[in-house]
Write a protein that binds this DNA or RNA. Structure first.
Lengths: 167, 167
DNA sequence: TCGATTTCGTTTGCTACCAAACGGATATTA
DNA sequence: TAATATCCGTTTGGTAGCAAACGAAATCGA
C-alpha cells in the first residue's frame, strides 16, 4: 500500500472478519459497498456544513439549482429525473427553493397539468457564486487522489450505478 | 475503455462540459464526487426495495442491527458513532427497531444517564437470516467488478473518507 | 361526444436525518 | 457539601426522502 490511510478503518475491517469467523461472506463486495455509502455520507455532510450552509442549501437543493443552471428551465418531471429524486420529493425541494427566492414555478399554458421550474435572478447569482466554491470543495474531498485515480474511481462507480440500476 | 458501461452516463457528462464552456472547472473531481453520491443512492434504494423491505428495515435500521450483531450489546453513544449517525437520529432508529421487536434498551445501574442497546432473540434471528441475503445483494451491486477492482474501489473510497473527514 | 383511462404535480403519512435545546445524573471544585 | 460544570439520551423543529393516494387535466375509444 503506497499511500497513507487511516489505520483505524482497516482495523475495524479486520475485526469484523474475526467476529464473523467462518461464515461464508463476500468480504470484498461488503467493503466496497459500505465504503461507497460512508464516503457519500462524509462528502455530503462536509459540503452541507461548509459551502452550502452559507446559502442555506441542502445537497438536494444545490443539485436542483445546478441542474437548472446547466439545462435551463425544465418541466418538473424531467427535473426530478435529472436530480435523481422522486416527483414527490422534488415538490418539497422546489418549495424550499422558492421560499429562498432561488427558483420560480411557471404554469404551462398548452397543458395545464404541467409546471416548469426555472432559476430566478437571485438563484442564478447564487449558483454562479456557489459553484466555483463547491467545485473547490469537491477537489478537496478527493484531493488525496491523483487525476488518473479520480478517473478510475469515477469509472468504477459508473459501473456500480449501472449494476445497481438507478431506479 | 475495456468494459461496457451505460453510454447515457458519459453523454450527460460530456453535455455538462459543453454547457459550462470555458469556465475553470475541476471536472475529474466533480465526476468522482457526484458518482460517489449517485452510486450510494442507487445502492441504498435497491437494498431497501429488495432484501430490507421484507424485514421492514431501512438502511440505517439494518446497519444498527448489523453493528449490534458484530459488536454485541453497546452503549447508545458508541452505537451512534459506529453507525455513523448523530445521537438524536439513533434514538429514533432504535425506537423504530424496538417497535419491530428487534432490539431492547437497558438502563445502566452504575450511571443512570446511560442506556445500552442489544439485540432481542427476534433481532438475532432476523439479522442471521438477513445478512447472508444482504451480502448476496452487495455482491450483485458490485458484480460487474473483478475482485481486485472491488479492492481498488474500497481503497480509493477509504482515502476519500479520510480526506472528507467522517465528522 | 362522452365515459374511461392515462398523465401530470401535489398531498399525505411515514421514516430518517441533523443541530440545538433540554433535563436529569454525574463530576468537579471552592 | 453546595454550587457549578459537564455529560448523557431524548425531544424539538426543521428539511429530506419515498410510496401511494389524490384531483385536475388531457387523451383515447367507441
Amino acid at each position: 500500500m503506497q499511500h497513507r490511510t487511516d489505520p483505524r478503518l482497516l482495523d475495524a475491517e479486520r475485526l469484523i472478519g474475526e467476529r464473523l469467523g467462518d461464515r461464508r461472506l463476500d468480504f470484498d463486495s461488503m467493503l466496497a459497498v459500505s465504503n461507497i455509502y460512508r464516503a457519500a455520507t462524509a462528502v455530503r455532510r462536509r459540503a452541507e456544513k461548509g459551502v452550502l450552509s452559507e446559502f442555506g442549501l441542502s445537497w438536494g437543493g444545490f443539485t436542483t439549482l445546478w441542474v437548472l443552471w446547466v439545462w435551463g428551465e425544465m418541466q418538473s418531471a424531467d427535473l426530478a429525473e435529472e436530480c435523481d429524486l422522486s416527483k414527490g420529493t422534488l415538490t418539497g425541494v422546489v418549495k424550499t427553493l422558492e421560499k429562498r427566492g432561488f427558483v420560480q414555478r411557471t404554469a404551462v399554458e398548452a397543458d395545464r397539468r404541467k409546471v416548469t421550474v426555472s432559476l430566478t435572478d437571485a438563484g442564478l447569482e447564487a449558483i454562479e457564486q456557489l459553484f466555483p466554491r463547491f467545485n473547490l470543495y469537491e477537489g478537496e474531498m478527493v484531493g488525496d487522489l491523483s487525476t488518473s485515480e479520480k478517473q478510475e474511481l469515477a469509472e468504477l462507480l459508473r459501473r456500480v450505478i449501472v449494476a445497481a440500476g438507478s431506479r
